[in-house]
Amino acid sequence: MQVKREERYSLRLQVNGKRYEEQVEPRKLLSDFLREDCGLTGTHVGCEHGVCGACTVLVDGRAVRSCLILAIQAEGADITTVEGLAKDGKPHPLQEAFSECHALQCGFCTPGILMSSVEFLQTHADPGKEEIADMLSGHLCRCTGYKGIVEAVQQVADRRKEGEVRESGDPVSICSRTTPTV
């Protein structure tokens, strides 16, 4: 019996500022391409059905579930993963706020939530807690850490609105909860 070799397609795209040119199978998911071919394992794969949100990345600035699109559909795109948020060794303001507001528990959902939050804050300059909670409704956090996550996103929105620029590592927090709850 002869096994037919699956055809491969040329894929050119940019991930976190780095150009990639690879040959990929037509059925390879973007999430698998990022993890296997790019070595970027911060994009988590949970449900593989687009329900949990753990695999969310930015494709040309838009939050996308990378388990729902094929890698070849991202041809020519500019992709940002959670690894691309920090700049020059300094965490993104959302990453700092997640730490300050204790918005992290097991961390499995965090990369996808961060990426959706980045897009959300680009399109919502002054969101309320209800709007933030609505954005989060597309993500499953099994640790039920939503309160801290809402506070972290709200903190970044408030800081941007006030024009504050905080340096990395600033210990001052404006979160209402400053100690983690069990």
Results as ranks from 00 to 15, higher is better:
residue 125 A to L: 12
residue 20 Y to I: 03
residue 146 Y to R: 06
residue 87 K to L: 14
residue 99 S to C: 12
residue 32 D to Q: 12
residue 83 E to C: 09
residue 112 G to M: 15
residue 41 T to Y: 12
residue 181 T to R: 06
residue 150 V to E: 10
residue 71 A to P: 01
residue 29 L to T: 10
residue 32 D to T: 07
residue 168 S to K: 08
residue 42 G to F: 07
residue 113 I to S: 10
residue 31 S to P: 05
residue 13 L to W: 08
residue 146 Y to I: 06
residue 161 K to R: 12
residue 58 L to K: 01
residue 87 K to T: 15
residue 87 K to D: 15
residue 143 C to M: 08
residue 157 A to E: 09
residue 71 A to Q: 01
residue 48 E to R: 06
residue 137 S to I: 12
residue 27 R to H: 00
residue 82 V to D: 01
residue 151 E to T: 04
residue 30 L to G: 05
residue 70 L to G: 00
residue 114 L to T: 04
residue 107 G to Q: 08
residue 100 E to C: 04
residue 10 S to D: 07
residue 20 Y to E: 06
residue 54 A to S: 15
residue 72 I to D: 01
residue 164 E to C: 06
residue 42 G to L: 07
residue 14 Q to S: 15
residue 158 D to Y: 07
residue 89 G to H: 05
residue 159 R to G: 09
residue 114 L to E: 04
residue 152 A to S: 10
residue 27 R to P: 00
residue 71 A to D: 00
residue 103 A to H: 07
residue 34 L to H: 07
residue 169 G to R: 04
residue 143 C to N: 08
residue 94 L to C: 13
residue 15 V to E: 03
residue 22 E to N: 09
residue 30 L to Q: 05
residue 154 Q to D: 13
residue 61 G to T: 09
residue 144 T to K: 02
residue 60 D to M: 08
residue 51 V to F: 09
residue 10 S to C: 10
residue 143 C to Y: 05
residue 95 Q to N: 00
residue 174 I to K: 09
residue 157 A to L: 12
residue 127 P to L: 00
residue 100 E to G: 14
residue 57 V to W: 13
residue 117 S to T: 07
residue 86 A to I: 02
residue 6 E to K: 02
residue 89 G to Y: 09
residue 149 I to E: 08
residue 88 D to G: 05
residue 159 R to C: 05
